[in-house]
Amino acid sequence: MLVNNKDEKKDVAAKAEHADDAHSHSGDGAHSDDAGHSHDVDHLSTPHLFEHVQDSNSFHVPTGNIYLDKDNLHGNHVEVPQFTTKQEYTPAYGSIKPMTLQITKFMVIEVIVFLVALVLFGWLAKKIKGGATAKGRIANLLEVLVLFIRDQVARPSIGKAEGDKFVPFLLSLFFFILGCNLMGLIPFMGSPTGAWAVTSVMAILTFGVVCGVGIRKFGVVGFALAQVPQMDLPFGMGYALKPLMLGIELFGLCLKHFVLSVRLLANMMAGHIILAVFLAFIAESSGTMMQWIVIPAASGGYVAIMFLELFVAFLQAYIFTFLAALFIGSASHQH
């Protein structure tokens, strides 16, 4: 777990305060760490790290000089313009937050992803219209990705004739997730795929497509029964075991999609928290002698993790799309 226990035990009160009003309060002596210098903000606290990864109503951008302007160690928050005043329309329930009708950072990023994808692929479509060859690096790169989803994901998992019908859905899934993942690598942006609301919607849509395919092909009952594996059971045993297995398999079907959403969420969130931790090391050590060791080490680690994150961004988009294709494939074939 990404928690620094020592600090947290010490500064529960300070952190609660910080979380409510992280960047406006000035030093009150409530917090002083082992290095002997004082900070208003505990950069390594969990809420603070999560704040950089999770959705918010503002973009976080650097401003000023952190040495001169200690009160504003964190840079500025650029608020997303709102149409409504913040109000809770529904009660919170467990992890489900209240509905507020506020425009958030992730919504803005999703729109950017949509527009960038539309421009890039609209351009590619024009370029290769009528079977012309893709010329240039960008066109070829985009085409390779499109062909990869069609030839290596859709067709082997679903079958050629049927797979081609799902290529547009799988392409949308892949490029939307990839775009959201990659946005997290751009400074001051974030990964919408690091929010469960986003990944769960992707998984629910996939679940809907999977059920839709199965029901269209075998009917509601046929699709449900197709989940039970074929077995040679002694007479009578089938009546006892098959309903149980049906229950388990249907639960398993839902669970597969739940895991699909959590896998993407956990991967994106974990990567960004590690990046936030490296940055927090720098912030924690700034102004002390330790910074001369910590800053180069943390910067190197940060760059290395950025490379890893670049790989993970593609890998997770691929895994999500590939599993979606596999689920669609298994729903459209009796097993």
Binding site: T46, K97, P192, W196, S200, V201, L265, M269
Partner: peptide
């Protein structure tokens, strides 16, 4: 651990 609830699985209906 923190005294302040941080939920990795927080689910915002607006965003969803």
């Amino acid at each position: 651990a923190t005294g302040k609830e941080v939920d990795a699985l927080e689910w915002s209906p607006d965003l969803a």
